[in-house]
Nucleic acid binder design. Sequence first.
DNA 1: CGGAGTCTTGATCCCGTTCAAGCAGCGTGG
DNA 2: CCACGCTGCTTGAACGGGATCAAGACTCCG
Lengths: 248, 248
Amino acid sequence: MSSRHPALRLFLRRLQQRSILNEEEQAAILSIKGRQAEIEPHRDIIRPGELTDFSCLIVSGFAARFGQLDNGHRQITAIHIAGDMCDLYSLMLPKVEWALQALSARLAILKVAHRDLLDLVHAYPGIAEAFWRDCVADGSITSQWVVNIGRRDARMRTAHLFCEIGVRMERAGLGRRTAFPLSAVQTQLADALGMTPVHMNRIIRGLRRDNLLIIQGRDVQVPDWDRLAAAGSFDGGYLAMDESWRLS
Amino acid sequence: MSSRHPALRLFLRRLQQRSILNEEEQAAILSIKGRQAEIEPHRDIIRPGELTDFSCLIVSGFAARFGQLDNGHRQITAIHIAGDMCDLYSLMLPKVEWALQALSARLAILKVAHRDLLDLVHAYPGIAEAFWRDCVADGSITSQWVVNIGRRDARMRTAHLFCEIGVRMERAGLGRRTAFPLSAVQTQLADALGMTPVHMNRIIRGLRRDNLLIIQGRDVQVPDWDRLAAAGSFDGGYLAMDESWRLS
DNA sequence: CGGAGTCTTGATCCCGTTCAAGCAGCGTGG
DNA sequence: CCACGCTGCTTGAACGGGATCAAGACTCCG
């Protein structure tokens, strides 16, 4: 049990980038109660087919939403960073269809009961709208992934993903878009981009050779943002994170 | 101006498949006012970058959400059928990032002012939740598309898409999953599945040769549903259309 | 020191693209 | 009535991006 958990500040900050919340609503968000848990890598937080009664706020680390195929292949459909309430949608559709899994070692989450979230939603219309809006933004990102995987070649795809993560990390206050931590192995990036680990490796090597990316252990650096953005023809509008949203 | 428009009945039916609405809320949905319009094919209903103040309820025909790339390539990220309020998400993020376009000739829509929808949302919490839930379901479908395009080969992908459309048409009361109208040309299906029109043609020919699909003009028939579903390893759970959702 | 996981590299193969052309249906206009 | 042009469907041939198979190298850790 914890109140005013640091992750709640991140979460509130996230919501406020897209929605306006009054004092009372802000306080209500910050007083959300949850149970913290550490998740080991490759361990499912949520298994598809289950009926859930909680959502997961990421405290630190990375998590991903997985789709799984009969033949054992997996496809990541979303990557979540600290401050994301990564399965907020399960509040509306508690029978989840997607596995949620730690991307990296050292994933810490805060499990928040649906009951508590629903109470918030019913008591504060502004919070309901903010949650709804965040679910829509999540969908916008997923749509962009469809475009990315469907119509861009491997190199563009990869550059685009690094741009997206960079911008999201920066806006979350977890780094700069040109320098941020990313603890995901190449196999997982491949699963996110719909390609094989071998090819993922070659593409990343290429990006490093061309000095578009510098990757050292868990740290990513972008020497020249504009060139990387051009290589991925990245336009962050779909992230719905600039101020133009702030109209009720 | 119209009230109790037939499309509103479809829309209400859609909402009620996922959410519980009381009498008053049902009546409120049915009394939504809108301006009907006929859209020509290849004409944008909504252009990306615009600020919208209305949403589109499809009366008849098909519409699609498009992502566009610098090189002119397009990727469809969602297909909408009659009864879909196809850009409900713009209610929360009025600055749209996606083009919305007629997929077929003979698309009729009902333009509904955001103002009216927001009034409904504020007056009836049940409607707000139903709208929110539908946005989440839309996101679930988009996630499935990521899996489909990212990890399935062309034949599976195609079979999967036909299964999805079949089930959605059936649930909307617009046909049976084994026999439904679909007015989309092969080029557009290719844009939805991230492939070239030429290859799309070959795959469809293959499915017809194997008697998995019968396509005559605008009508699709599925001689053996189970075989088609197997060919696409289709499991409709992600559509969130069975009754298990009906818990508030 | 051995083993597991990750990164790296090479060789070969194939699914899907690309380029190109022919064909069928259909509305339009001479 | 046929010629035409347009749009969508179909087919062939050749190419290439990414997959697949296989093995070696590095790092971390027990």
